[in-house]
């Protein structure tokens, strides 16, 4: 096989499902049966995976650096919360559809304006958008409950799956199912020609302009898709926790998704999975052992990753696999 042929095969088959890709799902299902006492944390991990996945689409694939992604998470969460609190709309699936639509709208409008800029300007403007929404939610306290928060009521999913605040088994299955659906969407987007053009924009935006690709339109499109998925994550968060506060629109939440991608690796689809699991488990276990000093441990891990694994943990795996393959060939 010539190099050209090998490259052609690689391109033609790169979207195919590899056996290893089943691993996170098998683990997630196994965790449901093996660790019934950890399902509350597990559900939070699944939501964080979904949120980080949406960020990966814009950050990892399209190269849009944003610190304001919680704007969409929060919009989704408040969409579900406000429907439940003020319109007695407790149906979960339609609630999530509304959440996705609301977040997509915010993404479309803000993306249309903001994506003219890039780099630090874009970073600051995304953050400013989020802060504006945060302040809006704070001001409209009668609607949103403000700092004190808003209780959210949810009917059983499809009339079958009841959410028990004690066991979290219903919440876990619901979150897992949704994550799987959303993952299929993201995977589809990433491996489509549209996804390839995003990578092109990330790698060399001038060249993409030169070949006549509608750069800004593609960026706004992916930003909107990503916002919708973040909105689903936020809506899911509101439904599962049955309570939301201004915290859903906070910088901490936006930064957490970023940290997850740094830990797990960005632009790699599964980076969000590895990063979110590692982040939450570390945080949970460290905070239990050292309630006052857990942040030190987390910070240390971040420094080590930033120093020795710039591509995150999945990047580290990929490098190791590559080295192994080369040795096997030679």
């Amino acid at each position: 096989m010539t190099v050209a042929e090998a490259a052609a095969t690689a391109l033609a088959t790169r979207h195919r499902v590899r056996p290893l890709e089943a691993l996170p799902w098998v683990l997630a299902v196994a965790a449901f049966f093996a660790l019934p006492e950890y399902l509350a944390v597990g559900t939070q991990i699944l939501i964080l995976v979904l949120f980080a996945l949406s960020l990966d689409l814009v950050l990892g694939y399209a190269g849009i650096v944003t610190l304001g992604h919680a704007a969409f998470f929060g919009t989704g969460a408040y969409a579900v919360g406000l429907l439940s609190a003020h319109l007695d709309w407790h149906e979960p699936i339609t609630g999530l559809i509304v959440a996705a639509a609301a977040a997509a709208l915010v993404g479309l409008v803000s993306g249309w304006v903001l994506l003219r800029t890039h780099g630090l300007t874009l970073l600051m403007l995304t953050m400013a958008t989020m802060t504006l929404l945060h302040e809006l939610a704070n001001e409209q306290e009668n609607l949103t409950g403000g700092f004190d928060g808003l209780p959210v009521e949810i009917d059983p999913v499809l009339g079958l799956l009841r959410f028990s605040p004690l066991t979290y088994s219903g919440q876990y299955l619901y979150a897992l199912g949704l994550l799987f659906l959303m993952f299929l969407v993201v995977r589809r987007v990433v491996y489509s020609p549209f996804g390839h053009s995003l990578t092109g924009i990330r790698e060399n935006i001038l060249r993409m302009h030169a070949v006549g690709a509608p750069v800004r339109q593609r960026l706004v499109t992916v930003y909107t898709i990503s916002a919708a998925i973040a909105g689903v994550a936020g809506g899911l968060f509101a439904q599962v926790n049955a309570y939301i506060t201004l915290d859903v629109l906070s910088l901490e939440r936006a930064a957490t998704a970023l940290i997850v991608l740094i830990l797990g690796g960005h632009g790699r689809l599964y980076g969000a999975f590895v990063g979110a699991a590692l982040y939450m488990i570390l945080e949970d276990e460290l905070a239990k052992e050292f309630p006052e000093f857990w942040q030190f441990g987390l910070g240390l891990v971040l420094v080590l990753i930033a120093l020795f694994a710039r591509e995150g943990l999945t990047g580290l795996f990929a490098q190791a696999a590559e080295r192994f393959r080369k040795r096997a060939r030679s």
């Binding site: 944390v41 926790n241 506060t245 915290d247 906070s250």
Partner: peptide
């Protein structure tokens, strides 16, 4: 247990 922030979710878990 550390409740960290006034966000509700961490305290709930």
């Amino acid at each position: 247990r550390d409740s960290k922030r006034p966000g509700g979710d961490i305290a709930k878990v």
